[in-house]
């Protein structure tokens, strides 16, 4: 299987991908994401980008949530 990796932030709005790696983000945030089931291997959808370089909205397992762009850029996803 070939991997097409990029950061979550580089995706166009509306795309659904699977998470390849979550690395280098604040441990508190990492725990929170894990609480919502945002982990390696899980499908995630980019719903929208907020105003003024604000947070981006994501959907995972039917739950909507938002995180900052800086952190989203540390989530590596697999386009394939």
């Amino acid at each position: 299987m070939t991997l097409h990796l990029c950061s979550l932030l580089q995706l166009p709005t509306g795309s659904t991908v699977s998470i390849h790696k979550i690395e280098g983000i604040n441990p508190i945030l990492r725990r929170r994401l894990a609480d919502l089931g945002v982990l390696e291997g899980v499908r995630i959808r980019l719903k929208g980008k907020g105003p003024f370089l604000g947070p981006i909205t994501l959907e995972c397992n039917g739950q909507l949530f938002a995180i900052r762009r800086k952190e989203a850029s540390r989530i590596e996803v697999n386009l394939a």
Binding site: N26, I28, L29, R32, L33, L36, P55, T57, Q63, L64, F65, A66, I67, R68, E71
Partner: peptide, 11 residues
């Protein structure tokens, strides 16, 4: 000190 942000958006 930097802050973190993450919020669930309920329906």
């Amino acid at each position: 000190e930097s802050s973190v942000f993450m919020i669930e958006l309920p329906p």
